[in-house]
Nucleic acid binder design. Structure first.
Lengths: 197, 197, 197, 197
DNA sequence: AATGAATGAGGATTCATTCAT
DNA sequence: TATGAATGAATCCTCATTCAT
């Protein structure tokens, strides 16, 4: 899709990127409603009004962060999964990548998980679509496991629910994101393999 | 004057209860920050200022809803678990009760899961304590299963993560809350018992 | 005017007096506008609404405090002045009594000096009348000194201005109210230029 | 576009100045607490919220007025005192300037004297510092008189107390501010008892 | 590409006060 | 005498947003 990744951002996108970074940082820590345009302006040495040159509204800024968050975490997860061929190894790599992004590596990814689409009604449909787009990966990875159809759906929901809930209690210094990811997956894995004993 | 003493309407608590109900309903649907005191006033036929006779602040109102939510869902879960003796049956009953409350039976319970403590910094400690108090039940129910210590923690987190994530996608008409609960639990069950094949 | 001072307050005036005391204490420390009916209620273990049984409004409560303040300080000043016969000694005694009441002995007196009539427009005329009524004493005491007519007025204003300004800077532990009073009076008694040369 | 460069209206400070002027006018007449942001907005043809573009809070607006008040009255007093060399003449000139500003020439100065620092606890320290900074002038002017040390302090307090009390009773049409100032000073210059037989 | 200044609606909250009981 | 519950208006302030420059 991207023709030349290295050649991407022309100089004028500098500020836009700075803005996105700062906003993602604030929103992932304080939440969307608790972050004001003033806050974002302060963090970027910009006046609140100036932000509107780059984004049509606060909601649109959020959508951009969401989109970027999905892009980044998807890219990393895809790369990780691609490094293995065994379906379960692929899923595991994806879970680890997912949680590393979510817990430490990307404010953007954190925003995607933390901000509920329904909390921003005006753009909730688009936010949901972005989320779904991302979660599709896990649907496919799980499909590779050849579970009964009905089971697949719940396995995905439980897996992501379990992984994402880590955002609420993860603290640096305890289990690493990778370890947490494997532990959560472990909770679902053994039955999947069944032939044990 | 009192026709039936036992039936005596505690009139003074009437409005307070009405207020809590209305606020829980609004907050669980729109979120805490998107619900204004004006909204709550409108839903109760009260002036915004009048709410302050009953609650010292919006945050305190939220704490009261949280506390009531925990009280209600805990009561229901405890009763459900008490009806079985087999540890796994007890856990299953608890999961079903939890999800029925969360998805259809109680706006209060929904608030507890939906509103993140960190989104309301001034009272986040108290909200977290209430949540923890509730989740303790699941810690105990899982402990009865006699899993390896390390596994218990992740089993609980994954289970609750999986169950609670249903709030994001549950729609009446699809799988019932009870069925969802059993399906999620199923994802964790089989390995626990290992009697496969 | 008072027929029997000792026989004054009948039992039912208990609460009213309590109310006045508490309100005077709050108002003299925080000011009139910064003291709410709620504050006064809290200090008296009364609900704000209950205060209205005793006083028609917050402004009327202030007028009552003012009146009581004037009554008390006037009584003390009059008694002090009566103990001397020499005009200057009488004035000095009055100044000392005035400042002792104002700085340490009476919250009521403090209110009279601290709350500007113009700050409470609805009753400013009555407050001013009460003040004037009190200051009349000083007019008379100064008249006894047999100064030129024109001088009398300014002597009184300067004297009271000087004395009352102590309210802004007096701190227990420094000069006593009595000493301050004598020092201020001294400024008017002894010429500034010291006949030096 | 600019017709006269030297006459270039500093448009950007226009509103801020207008705001300060209007607020000083209202506050010196009604008092700080009785003046609302709405009132100030109305007087400036601004919405209340717009004021916050220029001042962070109502208290900060007051501090700005105080500072400007001190700046203005200090400037005038300093100039007046500088025009004489005899210490007593210098003090007299200062008193006259002080009272002219206070009674008729400057709403700002009036605010400084009228609003008690303790009435605005959040900024009372800064208000007090501003006042002290101004009064320092009188300390120095009085020091030039070579009075006994102990006397100096009370002379200053009495003098300022007497002068400032004029704010409570001055009415245009009576004695002029300059005359009042001289009369008050006279009270300290000439002994009270002198011509007593 | 950004600023300075403002808007207008709405935020939570506090106020003095009322009144049935 | 007092309370419990509420009122209605006003409080300060913050919000996302706009727009001429």
């Amino acid at each position: 899709m991207a023709i030349t990744t290295s050649e991407r951002a022309p100089r004028q996108d500098n500020r836009r990127q700075h803005l996105l970074d700062a906003a993602a940082g604030l929103i992932c820590r304080r939440g969307y409603h608790a972050t004001s345009m003033r806050d974002i302006g302060r963090a970027t040495d910009m006046l609140p009004g100036s932000i509107y040159y780059h984004f049509a509204s606060k909601d649109e800024l959020l959508v951009a962060i969401y989109a970027e968050g999905v892009r980044r975490i998807a890219e990393r997860v895809d790369k990780a999964a691609a490094r293995a061929t065994d379906p379960m190894k692929r899923l595991e790599a994806a879970c680890v990548a997912h949680l590393e992004m979510l817990l430490t590596d990307s404010d953007y990814a954190q925003v995607v998980v933390r901000v509920l689409p329904e909390d921003v009604p005006a753009v909730s449909v688009r936010l949901t679509a972005l989320r779904d787009d991302y979660e599709e990966r896990f649907r496919r990875l799980i499909a590779e496991l050849k579970l009964p159809k009905a089971r697949q759906r719940y396995a995905r929901l439980t897996l992501l629910g379990g992984l994402n809930s880590a955002q609420a209690w993860y603290r640096p210094g305890g289990d690493s994101p990778a370890r947490i990811a494997r532990r959560v997956l472990e909770c679902l894995r053994e039955p999947l393999e069944v032939e044990s004993q």
